[in-house]
Design a protein around this nucleic acid. Structure first.
Lengths: 344, 344
DNA sequence: TTGTAAGCGTTATCAG
DNA sequence: CTGATAACGCTTACAA
């Protein structure tokens, strides 16, 4: 039996309405009354009941966050960005992770119904049908790194294609002609886009793609490791490995190290994401920087806009730019001596 | 105006009570009636309102998770463990991160009031007073890696001291006499415990601690990097660096690499945690394994026990064991050829 | 097996 | 400036 607004009202000799006004700054209350109420409330350790409040106001002050998986640094950065922004808006983040199957996403979406004021969905494999079938029309939605770009949803993603293209061009510029790619999986949006960027750069340079050096991965270190092992076994080895993300690049690095292949002298290795640890591996990783936590923050900001003004919320797609970060693993640092980028 | 239980009742020609019974499997309902109700509910896309439900039942089906910060892989693993367990219990995780200051913890704690059925608090610097002042007596609580061990709270932590002691002994056994330690910060519980373990092993071996080679860190890669740089500048260098966690060990590795100091030949480097990436750095990192995600899962399991049976919930302290993982960075692998531990 | 109706703790509308 | 009181949507005795 926690203290209720009624207890406070009785004890302070006022009505519940007045107490409510004090706690919500709605309507006028005489200063004297106000302090008395606040005093009583503190003494009684009163905290408004959230459920009752949201039943009445139809606001939960909670945003749902659907994540594909919680592995690695990437997601923890995203959550951080979201959570910080949410806190600034006096809201909480209800997270639900490990959803890779479409059915799981659907279930998670339904489970969020009524618990949240809005939803940030990061499901690289989600489709519009699943979304419309499981999200009530009224809850604002922001999509993060999903394939749906112009279907009338507010969405944000990283410039995967542009970043991958830029990285590939960078390698080409430094003389590489046989550049391998370890993908993020055929069904993953980010992975597919990065592959497309890689291809675009290659074809722009008039280099035909060799399927033998495009190996399938899944964004884990072990996939990167195995991918590199497979590439090393090739009769005609590539001179550079472009991993679909940093985790795989680090896995590749370890495989090369174990095989005695020097990086970058014998093989250049580059990644994507610029996770915090990237600059601390050996050799420091050349990669494509994505401002991960600001990606989350940006999604949250747009979500709150939509929550506050559902009517004129823009449903457009937004692309967060990427930036090439040249460190030592590509062997090209001397060409662009970006010294600030050296370890600390 | 989303569909309510009343709409469904009217449309199905029954009372709200019956609809409620169907949705909660409480009380008997004729099969025929049940199907009809379910049909109508589906057609009307009815979802029970969570707020109303929890106002009535006093259950939120949500557990709060308070985290000190969301950096690095460690926390994302913890969340994953918690979330998975929560999902099994039909619950959600409300996470709140970035709380390092005591005042922030207090605020976050208060903000969770009434929104959660229980709380998992991971605040390495929290004290009993803050807790009791801000958590209603009734909500079950599980403490994760906090200094409070026997104050009548249910708590779990890692065997920091034992693990650190074991690691230090391992280094001693392999001939090291001058072992440096990069700490996790004086105010951090885990960091302090690990330091204590380090000291215990040294003193058991009759080696006096040299304050010059115990440098302060904060669990970030850059602290590890800077710590290693400082150690290298010493007139009398250590022969081994025991970093308080893997992130710092990786930072140290990068500093040594940059300074041209070979690991493990000239300097052994070891860490703590065994984050997923540890086996993929160069050289693969010798460390102390903590089953991180099961740590989170374990906390969640105990929390649900307490939620289900608040009366006889055990308030004891639980220590999760650690395990020495010997890889190459300590230079001792030949002594215990734990080959399965080689990369993949 | 089903219905009625009294809460659950707030907010908000209207009077005063 | 303050007080009654009707929602808000659901659960749950208690009746039927």
């Amino acid at each position: 039996m926690p203290t209720t607004i009624r207890d406070v009202a009785r004890e302070a000799g006022v009505s519940v309405a007045t107490v409510s006004r004090v706690f919500n700054d709605s309507g006028p209350v005489r200063q004297e009354t106000r302090t008395r109420i606040l005093e009583v409330a503190k003494r009684l350790r009163f905290t408004p009941n959230t459920a009752a409040r949201s039943l009445s106001t139809r606001r939960t002050h909670t945003v749902g966050v659907l994540l594909p998986d919680l592995y690695g640094e990437f997601f923890s950065e995203v959550i951080r960005g979201i959570d910080q922004t949410a806190q600034q808006h006096g809201c909480h983040a209800l997270v639900s992770s490990s959803h890779n199957e479409l059915a799981e996403v659907a279930a998670a979406l339904r489970a969020m119904r009524g618990r949240v004021d809005g939803l940030i969905v990061m499901a690289p494999e989600v489709d519009a049908a699943t979304l419309t079938a499981n999200v009530p029309d009224r809850v604002p939605l922001v999509l993060l790194n999903t394939p749906l770009c112009d279907d009338g949803y507010a969405s944000i993603d990283v410039d995967n294609r542009g970043g991958a293209e830029q990285m590939t061009r960078h390698l080409l510029r430094h003389g590489h002609r046989r550049i391998a790619h370890i993908t993020g999986g055929a069904r993953n949006h980010d992975g597919r886009e990065r592959l497309l960027g890689y291809r675009a750069a290659l074809s722009a340079a008039g280099i035909p793609e060799d399927p033998a050096i495009v190996v399938a991965g899944d964004f884990t270190e072990s996939a990167g490791h195995d991918g590199a092992v497979a590439l090393l076994a090739l009769a005609e080895r590539p001179t550079a490995i472009f991993a679909g993300n940093d985790s795989m690049a680090i896995g590749a690095l370890s495989a090369l190290q174990a095989a005695g292949v020097r990086v970058p002298e014998e093989m250049a290795v580059v990644g994507f994401d610029d996770i915090p640890i990237a600059q601390y591996v050996t050799p420091p990783l050349t990669t494509v920087r994505v401002a991960i936590s600001s990606l989350g923050a940006r999604a949250a900001v747009r979500l709150f806009q939509a929550i506050q003004a559902p009517a004129n919320a823009e449903r457009h797609h937004e692309t967060v730019p990427t930036e090439l970060v040249i460190r030592r693993s590509c062997g090209a640092q001397r060409f662009s001596p970006n010294l600030k980028e050296a370890v600390r």
